[in-house]
Design a protein around this nucleic acid. Structure first.
Lengths: 140, 140
DNA sequence: CGGTATCCACATTGATACTG
DNA sequence: CAGTATCAATGTGGATACCG
């Protein structure tokens, strides 16, 4: 046994035991949650809601720089589907729609905050590393 | 001022002030770091390296379930480019290649661990929410 | 105001085959 | 063993136009 390594599916390695998680199934399900973090706009929209509290569609459209109307809709639907935000139609005229974080959604924002802070802290190092890499590649 | 909201670019909202960050530039640069978290394999490969220490190409290929040879190569190059991992050619025959986390890479894994734990903790809730959503949609 | 619908360009990924 | 090259499929996001 010279070559010891955890020969398991990723998720079993990550969380000690995952009940009902078939080892056969590739990636085993954590990815589809990580995907929500990974897509272009979810994190930015979520953090807007954390920082500013409940927000209307148009407000989000203005405050999330660069997002299109379509992608805001798509992003909000995905977050809503996952139960991370709620959608409330206000009884105004014309009707307005307000989005808020759920408890689950809010619990995620704490980690996202760390992640964003990490990115801010290390962005100089990372940019340097990328420059060095790209340099050594173009020379090659 | 009845409609108060932070009318700023996302990154300015996230980290109080981002020196040298043009508000004009969409998303302003944190996204390209978040992208590394968001792609399909980076997190899983990184966590393998955290859990098992330095690892060879073939070992990673076996322990990251479902990854192809090509995508492992691509993922490792990206992580290397960002300075999150190092690549060491061992003086063996045939030559072997070992990948390890850098200090920066390791600092990221702590947050990733939280994220993965969060996903594991909330996966039931999220799956339920998704089922309810999909149900109410198909009924529509 | 808060969306949908359609179309399209581009990036990401996977399968397969080949290599030093 | 540790890759690279090529190609095809799929997904993601943006532009635009229209709607209740």
């Amino acid at each position: 046994m010279t070559d010891t390594h955890t020969e398991v599916t990723p998720d079993e390695a990550i969380v000690e035991t995952t009940p009902g998680c078939e080892p056969v199934r590739p990636v085993c399900g954590i990815r589809d949650i990580l995907d929500r973090i990974g897509d272009t706009w979810s994190v930015l929209v979520t953090i807007q809601l954390k920082l500013n509290g409940p927000r209307r569609f148009g407000q989000l459209l203005r405050s999330v720089d660069g997002i299109s109307q379509r992608m805001l809709t798509v992003t909000l639907r995905r977050l809503q589907r996952d139960g991370l935000i709620t959608r409330t139609v206000l009884d105004t005229s014309p009707p307005q729609v307000e989005y808020s974080l759920t408890a689950v959604g809010n619990s995620l924002t704490n980690i996202l905050k760390e992640l964003v802070d990490w990115a801010a802290t290390n962005r100089a190092d990372i940019d340097d590393a990328r420059r060095r890499w790209d340099q050594s590649v173009t020379e090659h």
